[in-house]
Design a protein around this nucleic acid. Structure first.
Lengths: 155, 155
DNA sequence: CTATGATAGACAATCAGGTTGTCGAAAAAG
DNA sequence: CTTTTTCGACAACCTGATTGTCTATCATAG
C-alpha cells in the first residue's frame, strides 16, 4: 500500500499485471462452468497438452517431484479434467490426458485471454500494447518454462 | 517450452518479466551476504517497513492470518532480519522492527532493482521502458497490495 | 535366455506453511 | 467497575510439497 521505494515499482507492476489477468480469467472461468479451477491448474493442463504425458514427465515439466505431480493429477482427475489410461506399449506407464472437459477449459481460457488482450488494446491502443509485448519478449527468455508452481513454492 | 497458444503469451511474459527480476535480485543478494532470503521475505520486510508493525497488522497487510504472520516473523527473527520488542505503551503488543541487517537487505534490494532497471533501460531505450511502465500503471490498480504470498498460496 | 540396471508409479513418513479454535492478559468501552 | 475487544501464544489440523522405499516392468549386456 501507499508508496513503495522507486526501484520496487517495475517488478511489482509486472507481477500485478499478471495477477490482474489471472484473476480476471478465473472469474470468467468460474462464471462459465469451471469454478473449481485454480491458477496452477492452468499450468498443469498446459503442461499435459493435447498429446498427454506421464506423471514423471509432468513432474519434470512443472519442476516438482513425480510424487507431487501424481497428487496434482489425482486432484484434477477427481475434478474431471484429466484421465489416466494404461499405456499399451509400456505397462509401467499410465498416460495422463485431458478429458473433453479439460480441453474445454483450455480452449475457453485461450478465448478469455484473447478477450482480455482486446480490452488492454482498447485501453492502451494496439500499437502501445504491441510495443509492450515486444519489449517483454526482448527481456525474457524465449522458452516458456512451466515450472511456475515449483518456483512459487520456493517463495 | 515450445509453443504456447497465442492468447497465453501476454500473461506469461508478464510473469516471466517479474520472475527474471526477482531471480536476478536474489542471485545478487546471495552474492552480497544474504543467501537465505527468499522472494517472499522481501514482501514481508517491505510490509514491516522502517517504522515497524505488529503480528496482527502484518497479517492483515500480507493477507494471511495473524498466526501465519507470527510464524513468518519467527523465521525472519531466527535469520536475524527482524526483532520483536515489547511496546511500552501497550504491554499486549510486541513491536516487530527491522534489524540493521534487515534494513541493509532492503536498501540493497532497492539498489539492485535500480541497477536492473538500468540494464533494461540500456536494452530497450529509456523511452520504451518508460512507456512500458506507464502502460502497466494504466492497467493495474494504483495501490500496491502486498498480499502476494497469500495469493500465491491459492495457486 | 538370463542377469543386471534403469524407470514408472504407488505407498509411507515427514516437513513447511497455512488454517481454525482457544486461551489469558491487557486495553478500551460502557 | 464491568464488559467487550484486541493482542499474542499455543494446539490441532489440513494441504501440498519433500525424500525414501518398494514392486512391476522395460532395456540391455553377457
Amino acid at each position: 500500500m501507499s508508496s513503495v521505494p522507486p526501484g520496487f515499482e517495475l517488478p511489482l507492476r509486472l507481477f500485478m499485471g499478471f495477477r490482474v489477468l489471472i484473476d480476471a480469467l478465473h472469474a470468467e472461468l468460474a462464471r462459465r462452468g469451471h469454478p473449481d479451477l485454480r491458477p496452477m491448474h492452468g499450468f498443469v493442463m498446459q503442461a499435459v497438452g493435447r498429446q498427454g504425458t506421464t506423471a514423471v514427465e509432468l513432474g519434470r515439466t512443472l519442476g516438482v517431484s513425480k510424487q507431487a505431480a501424481g497428487k496434482t493429477i489425482d486432484a484434477l482427475e477427481r475434478l474431471g479434467y484429466l484421465a489416466r489410461t494404461p499405456d499399451p506399449s509400456d505397462s509401467r506407464r499410465k498416460l495422463v490426458t485431458l478429458t473433453p472437459r479439460g480441453v474445454d477449459a483450455l480452449t475457453l481460457s485461450a478465448r478469455v485471454f484473447d478477450d482480455l488482450r482486446r480490452e488492454w488494446s482498447d485501453k492502451l491502443g494496439e500499437e502501445t500494447l504491441r510495443s509492450l509485448e515486444s519489449a517483454l519478449r526482448h527481456l525474457t527468455p524465449t522458452a516458456f518454462p512451466l515450472d511456475a508452481p515449483g518456483w512459487f513454492g520456493s517463495l
